[in-house]
């Protein structure tokens, strides 16, 4: 079943159009990846899905409902959660306060205990640091906190924007393990990554975005695709 369906999405920042009629879909229970180079419109697409940006054209449907005109707080209530690039935890709040911010929606507030337990099982380090200010955490811990925070609303769809950016190789590996684990628990994942080699390995389906348009999509076989090999994998194997 299709959980998220994005049709002919067009998004602009003022006069500058960034996304030009992009279409993609995310199957329930899948890990779907959105790949492409810098400035291809990946982040903008995710932000538009969660309502931080308004589309100029196109439609977004989630679990059968049209959501592209809803404010972001309503979209989050529908079950979409986004981890922004860099995680962006609130630096002057403690770990536990950051996690509670993730349970801001009315439905999530009643079940914080249960969700906290799940996050702490996934990231025991967060439990150790629960009273520490988020601004004092390491890069990897900050990313874990951001993912944990996004899970606090118990989302059906978790969108991650460049979760491995700037992290040490070992931490990158851990992050991908977490993504796989979450997916096994039934969370649908939409992943934006520049670590394309790694991403194609874990994603069930990938969409290649170039200058705001989806130019290619497919399963793990994309790794063998000539265009992907020359344009992305050559660059991706650093």
């Amino acid at each position: 079943m299709t959980l998220l369906d994005v049709r002919n999405l067009a998004v602009a920042y003022g006069e500058v159009q960034v996304v030009w009629g992009a279409s993609l879909s995310v199957e329930e229970g899948s890990i779907t990846a959105l790949i492409g180079s810098n400035g291809a419109g990946k982040t903008t697409t995710l932000k538009t899905i969660v309502g931080l940006k308004r589309p100029r054209e196109g439609e977004i449907h989630f679990a059968g409902e049209r959501i592209d005109q809803l404010p972001s707080h309503r979209i989050v209530e529908h079950g979409i959660s986004m981890v922004l690039e860099g995680g962006r935890p609130f630096p002057h709040m403690s770990v536990i306060e950051n996690l509670l911010m993730g349970a801001y929606t009315r439905a999530a507030r009643g079940r914080t205990g249960e969700h906290l337990e799940r996050v702490f099982r996934l990231f025991p380090i967060l439990q150790e640091r629960r009273n520490q200010l988020a601004g004092t955490l390491s890069g990897g811990e900050r990313q874990m906190l951001a993912i944990g925070r996004a899970l606090m609303s118990d989302p059906k769809l978790l969108m991650l924007d460049e979760p491995s950016l700037g992290l040490a190789p070992k931490v990158v590996e851990q992050t991908f393990q977490v993504i796989l684990e979450l997916n096994r628990q039934g969370v649908t994942i939409l992943l934006v990554e520049q670590n394309i080699q790694h991403t194609l390995q874990v994603a069930h389906r990938s969409f290649v975005l170039e200058t705001g348009r989806v130019v290619l999509s497919g399963g793990p076989e994309l790794r063998e695709n000539e265009h992907v090999r020359t344009a992305y994998l050559g660059m991706a194997t650093r």
Partner: peptide, 9 residues
């Protein structure tokens, strides 16, 4: 922006 992404109205 991060607050809005978490469902803060």
């Amino acid at each position: 922006e991060a607050a809005a992404a978490l469902g803060v109205n």
